[in-house]
Design a protein around this nucleic acid. Structure first.
Lengths: 223, 223
DNA sequence: TGTCACCATTTTGTATACAATTGGCGGCCT
DNA sequence: AGGCCGCCAATTGTATACAAAATGGTGACA
C-alpha cells in the first residue's frame, strides 16, 4: 500500500486508516481495538493510539474513555447535515474571494479546472464510468477557492466536512450527463461571479451547487 | 487547579492545557516540550503527547514532525477570519432552527437566557467589571441554539471556532453599556425570528451579532 | 429461575526504556 | 575567514512493561 509517504509511523498509520475508513472498509459500529490494529499494520500500539485519537477528532470514529474506539455510523441525515455545513463554508469562501478579488494564480487554476471540465464533458470517459479525472478536476476547483481565502479555519473545516465515507469519492456514480453539465455550469457561474465581485451571487451559487450534490446523493441513497 | 474532572489523565491534561492556552499563559511561538510539560504537570510523556496532538488539531498549537509543538500565534487577521467563519456557522444554526421549529426545551433555555440578560443589564454587575454571569448567559444562549440543530459537524465546528486565545473569554472587557444592550437586543430579535420561522432574518441577525463582537474586538485590539 | 457478587481475562491507560532524528558545536580543511 | 563535516546532547518517535478499568462468565444464594 502507500507505505512511508509521511515522516513518522503515526502519520502513516493515520492516513492509511483514514483512507480505509473513507472507502468504507470497516462496517459502522465496528470496534477498532488497538492490539488487533497494531498487528495488522505491523507497528506497536503507540502510533495506532495516536491515529485513532486523530480520526476520532475528525469525526470518523467515536471514543469512549476506557472503552476505546468504534467506527462512526453516518445516517443519511448526518450526511445531508454535513453537506449543509460544507455549503455555507464553501459559500463563504466564494464570498470572501469575490470581495477581495481573485489572485492571479488562483484565477489560472480555476480557468484550468473549467477548461478541463469542458474537455471531460466532450469526451466519452464519463459515459464509460471513469470519474477519476472529473473527481480530480472538481477537487482542484473547490480547493483552489478555499486556499485562496487564506482563512485557516475555513480551509480546515471545509476539508473535514468532505471526509465522510460514501460521500468521499464524490457520488458521481449517480450523475447523469445532465448533472455533469449542470455542475460544470455552476463552476462557470461561480467563477464569473467572483471575478465580477458579485459576492452574494457567488456565495448563493456555491451553496446551490453543493446542495444539488447532496440532493443527488439523497435520491440514490437507499439504492 | 481543576484536577480529575475527567476519567483519564490524558483528558485532564488536555483540558488543563487548553485552559492555559486560551487564557494566554503561554507566549506565542513558545516551544512546548514534552518532558518539561510532563514534569510540570506531574505525569509521564504519554498523556502529554496525546494532549498536544489534540490541541494541535484544534488549531491552538502547530506541529512539525520530529520537531514538536509550538504555541500558535494568532494575528488580528486570524481572529477576524475565525469570527467570520463562526458567524456563518451560527447563522446556519439559527436558520435550521427557524426552518424546523424551536423545540420546547430549547425554547425554555433561550427564554431563560434572555430574561437573565435583562436582569444583568439592570444590575450593577457589568459596571463593576464582573462579566462572568454575562459570559455564562451568552454562552448558554448560543449553545442552546447549536445543540438544538442536532447537526454534529456544525456543533463541533462552532465550538472549535470559539476556542481562540484572547477571544475566548469574550471581549466583554471592551463593551460599553450600549454594547451590552445591543447584544441583548440581538438575542431577542434572533429568538423572535426563529420562533416566527423567519429563517433568513434569524440567519442574518446572528451573523450581524457575531460580526459586531468581532468589530468591537478589532477596535480595541492594539490596546 | 433470576440476581448479584466475585474472579479471570481482555482491553485500555500510563510510565518508561530504547531508537531515530534534529540541531549545534568544534575541529578540520581549503 | 569561511564553509564543510562529524560528533554529541537534547528531543521526539516507538516499543513495551506495568497499572487500572471494563467485560464476561461462573456459581452462590434468594
Amino acid at each position: 500500500m502507500n507505505s512511508d509517504t509521511q515522516p513518522t509511523r503515526s502519520l502513516n498509520v493515520t492516513e492509511t486508516l483514514r483512507e480505509q475508513l473513507l472507502q468504507g472498509e470497516f462496517a459502522p459500529n465496528t470496534r477498532l481495538q488497538e492490539i488487533a490494529l497494531a498487528e495488522r499494520m505491523g507497528v506497536s500500539r503507540t502510533p495506532i493510539r495516536e491515529a485513532l485519537s486523530v480520526l476520532a477528532r475528525d469525526g470518523l470514529l467515536e471514543y469512549a474513555p476506557n472503552r476505546g474506539y468504534t467506527v462512526r455510523e453516518f445516517s443519511l441525515q448526518d450526511i445531508v447535515s454535513a453537506f449543509r455545513v460544507r455549503a455555507v463554508l464553501e459559500g463563504l469562501g466564494c464570498r470572501l474571494l469575490a470581495e477581495k478579488g481573485v489572485p492571479v494564480d488562483t484565477d489560472t487554476q480555476l480557468q484550468h479546472a473549467i477548461a478541463w471540465g469542458e474537455t471531460l464533458l466532450q469526451s466519452s470517459q464519463l459515459q464509460g464510468g471513469d470519474f477519476d479525472q472529473w473527481r480530480e478536476m472538481n477537487k482542484s476547483f473547490h480547493l483552489a477557492i478555499l486556499l485562496a481565502t487564506k482563512n485557516d479555519l475555513l480551509i480546515r473545516f471545509a476539508k473535514i466536512s468532505r471526509n465522510i465515507p460514501i460521500v468521499f469519492n464524490g457520488s458521481f456514480r449517480w450523475y447523469s450527463t445532465r448533472d455533469f453539465q449542470r455542475s460544470q455550469d455552476h463552476h462557470q457561474t461561480i467563477y464569473a461571479a467572483m471575478k465580477n465581485g458579485q459576492a452574494e451571487r457567488a456565495d448563493n451559487m456555491m451553496q446551490e451547487h453543493v446542495m444539488q450534490a447532496a440532493e443527488i446523493l439523497q435520491r440514490h441513497y437507499g439504492q
